[in-house]
Amino acid sequence: MAGRFVTRGFMGRRGAGAEADRIPPGQYVTRDFPVLSAGPTPHTPPDRWSFRIDGAVAAPVSWTWDQFLALPARDFTVDISCVTKWTKLDTHWTGVSVDELFGAVELGREAAYLVAWSDGGYTTNLPIADVVNGQAFVAYRYDGSPLEPAHGGPARLVVPHLYFWKSAKWIRGIQITDRDEPGFWETLGYHNRGDPWKEERYSGD
């Protein structure tokens, strides 16, 4: 790529020094919580909400909002990184581990991937290996309060070890698949897996 003109005096955003080793390459730390969206914010009321796991499973299962809230839940504190370069440290969530949810279904022998799908039509794909063993959860509280619609409420997926576009807002279900099915951003130039520590932002990275 040709040398780019550098603008005198423009610093961009700079990360904090002390936390440098917690910040993936190319990221800066933010204290606020930017809202990014590909569409209008859904506002699904609890009495119309459900969460479903289907696809390559022995039998599909679904929970109503009340049933979901009755599942064993825990608090999580994790760092999150968005592909648009902000990283937020020590975010506090409450939710249900994906391990807990998978405990309610029997995965098919061919099951290797999933598609997380949301109100509003958003999808993202993940290998099952990236959401088990405590790596992912479905959160419904952020920072001690119910998760706001702007940040993905009533419930969103949180997969902190990958770029945050994988943490589907307004999640309504997980479809288990035997083949990898690239989702909304993965089909338009973004990396299929999205590991921030390897800077896997775009396909080909």
Binding site: R4, F5, V6, T7, F10, M11, G12, R13, K85
Partner: peptide
């Protein structure tokens, strides 16, 4: 377009 010396652009 503004470009910082580390390549960051706005």
């Amino acid at each position: 377009r503004l470009t910082a010396d580390d390549g960051y652009e706005a």
